[in-house]
């Protein structure tokens, strides 16, 4: 009998290195990720009359309210873009980010039951959340494209679409990674200190006001611009608007800054998540 780890397929030991992430194992579970995404999508509209139309209703009415409150009553600038388009773009994008963050931050609590009974790479859950929100984002994006088409054909609005459209997929990726990373950090910490979960819900609301969602970066007063510029979501939203609508305030510097922050947050998230997943069943 050799006493060599190589003779065994699997060796379970107490604490492994922080960086043993087993990403290949996650890849082996890609079928599970897809099935979870399907589950989320299907169960969302089961037993509703409007079905998938519900994906449209929320951004549509929110845009309507924003146009009325911020556009008409407060007359905030929209960077010269049509108000409905400006708000709709921001809302769809911000929804995606906040949903990713919100859902991943409670992933341990929501799935404690499953996690306590079956092993699979825990990273599968947050990944499936981000991807299933992406499908919802895709559906809502279709609404935005319809609105843009309407403005282009009926209202004769000329979109200034350039090569910057290529920024759009990158920005979506950054947004997903940022939501995933920060969500995982929070989820890892809430297993022990529940206090954080209270913070998250209204923290996201507050964060929206220091992100150019209801106003463009260009309209922010100089005094508070620094707050906006340390927020990695600022260049992301500006980039999305630049790509889709042709107006946005993003520089090479702010783009690199955003990418750096996202990479750091994502890796911190994955590492803390991996550390917690091994023992969270005992504390949650």
């Amino acid at each position: 009998m050799h006493d060599n780890d190589k003779d065994w397929n699997l060796v379970i030991k107490p604490s492994e290195s922080l960086f043993s992430l087993n990403l290949r194992e996650v890849w082996n579970y890609k079928d599970l990720i897809l099935l979870l995404v399907r589950r989320d999508f299907v169960s969302f509209y089961k037993q509703t009359i409007f079905g998938p139309i519900w994906f449209f209703i929320q951004p549509f009415f929110t845009t309507f309210i924003y146009v009325f409150v911020f556009g008409t009553l407060a007359s905030l600038s929209t960077d010269g873009l049509p108000q409905p388009l400006f708000y709709l773009t921001n809302i769809v994008a911000w929804n995606y980010f906040s949903e990713c963050l919100n859902k991943t931050s409670t992933v341990f609590r929501d799935n404690a039951n499953i996690f306590g009974k079956v092993y699979f790479p825990r990273l599968v859950m947050p990944l499936s959340i981000v991807i299933s929100n992406l499908t919802r984002f895709g559906v809502q994006l279709a609404l935005l494209l319809l609105a843009m088409l309407y403005y282009a054909l009926v209202k004769g609005y000329a979109f200034d679409i350039t090569v910057y459209i290529l920024l759009f997929p990158l920005m979506v990726l950054l947004m997903a990674a940022l939501g995933l990373g920060s969500g995982m950090i929070i989820s890892a910490m809430t297993t022990k200190y529940r206090d954080l979960s209270f913070l998250v819900t209204f923290g996201i609301q507050l964060l929206m006001y220091v992100t150019p969602v209801i106003y463009p970066l260009s309209a922010a007063p100089e005094k508070v611009k620094w707050v906006l510029s340390i927020n990695p979501m600022t260049p992301i939203l500006e980039g999305i608007r630049l790509g889709l609508l042709g107006k946005g305030d993003i520089t090479i510097g702010s783009l690199i800054y955003a990418i750096t922050v996202v990479v750091v947050v994502l890796f911190t998230g994955i590492i803390t998540f991996n550390k917690v997943e091994k023992s969270f069943v005992d504390t949650v």
Binding site: D5, W8, L10, I12, P14, F115, V281
Partner: peptide, 18 residues
Amino acid sequence: KLLSRVTSPTAGKISIKG
């Protein structure tokens, strides 16, 4: 639970073939 990797051990080692 330890064998099925739902939680991890405090000390010691489990080796599994298959």
